[in-house]
Amino acid sequence: MQRLLATVVMLLLWTGVAVSAEPKVLNVFNWSEYVPQTVLDRFTKETGIKVVYTTYESNEAMYAKIKLLRGKGYDIVVPSTYFIDMMRKDGLLAKIDRAKLTNYANLDPRVLHQPFDPQNEFSVPYMWGNTGLMVNRKVVDPATISSWNDLFRPEFKGGVILSDDLRDTFGIALKALGYSVNSTSEAEIKAAYEWLLKLKPSVRVFDVTATKQAFIAEEVKGGMSWNGDAFIAMNENPDLAFVYPKEGLPLWVDSLAIPIGAEHKDNAHKFIDFLLRPDIAKLCVEEYNYSTPNLAAQKILDARHAQSRATSPTDADLKNSEFTNGVGKALDVYEKYWEMLKTAD
């Protein structure tokens, strides 16, 4: 009888362990082309965890799907700046267990503790960057460009590209006028709309998907560009130059987060900690050309990334710049003026 009881106990213990252990799978919902395949393969090789990688093309699309599913179906999402704020307030994100992240200390304090997640309880920075001003040397001397207001110069007429991202585009207008990119004042938002409306005759296109191609092919003369796109474009076309306007610019950070309904939270923490390793963060920067929040990785970047002001901006470059944060109900005001801008003749 004792032997039988011991056998039953052992079977129960074994069953409990088997049930509690997570399956070797991780469901990642991320931007397309944002984690190198070599990195995913290496994670699987080192951990045995298979990565199922699904993509989205906008924060809005990701947010809508996670909200519809109430945080189920995915183990990792990568929202930008103020979308972290929206998702945590909606109860869509699980808290990060910092004790499981051995590489967390590698992160740059400049990127941590932002208003969208003050204690980084729900998010871990992955990549960050800015929306700056790029121009073509065939059109103007970059040394004479120092302000967002320079987009009104006659040389740019008909050849300006603006972002099709509402907050980015209103952000540069607000900065040009001396306001915060996170203004909640309707008067200031209206003033930004009027600034953009005045610029619109010079605008050729609003775009977020093919910005670098437009600059490389010289279809546009100047305008907004994400710093990673700028790095690629400048390497393809040496006539291009990236400028940090004196008024400052919008900053963004894409963060790793775990949906509240994730079924593989332990695997998610392993993946986050893996991406925080300096050697892995280095590979991600050198593949996609955005800035890394990983100070240890910054020290081992190849020379072309370490010396580029697009991927490795200085504190002086970012003077007066701000991370784009949530604006609450004022978002309705932005959307009203955005629609007016896009439909204006």
Rank of each mutant, 00 (worst) to 15 (best):
G178V: 03
Y244I: 01
K299N: 07
D165I: 14
V111K: 00
V160R: 08
Y288E: 06
F122V: 03
A230P: 04
T324W: 03
P313R: 07
S202A: 15
W195R: 04
Q37H: 09
V51T: 13
Q298A: 13
L40P: 02
A21T: 14
R3K: 15
E22V: 06
A297I: 09
S180E: 04
P109D: 01
A306R: 15
F156A: 05
Q213N: 14
N120K: 02
E286H: 10
N325P: 00
A241R: 12
R304K: 15
T54D: 13
F215Q: 10
W14P: 00
A344C: 08
V28H: 09
F231N: 05
I232A: 09
W252Q: 04
F231Q: 11
I145C: 03
A143L: 07
E339D: 13
M234T: 02
T81R: 01
P293A: 08
M86D: 10
A230N: 10
D41Y: 05
K67C: 00
P245Q: 06
Q37W: 08
A217R: 15
T292M: 08
T211M: 13
M87I: 00
Y82M: 10
T292A: 05
S225W: 03
A18F: 05
I84D: 00
P278F: 03
R277Y: 02
G261Q: 01
L249N: 05
H264F: 10
E247I: 07
V181E: 06
H264Q: 11
N294Y: 01
E236V: 03
D229Y: 13
N59E: 14
L197Q: 12
F29A: 06
D85Q: 12
N325C: 11
Y290I: 09
I76S: 03
V111M: 00
V52D: 13
K246M: 06
L283P: 00
R137P: 04
L318T: 09
V140L: 10
F323A: 04
V139D: 06
K100L: 14
L68H: 09
T131P: 00
V17D: 07
W226S: 10
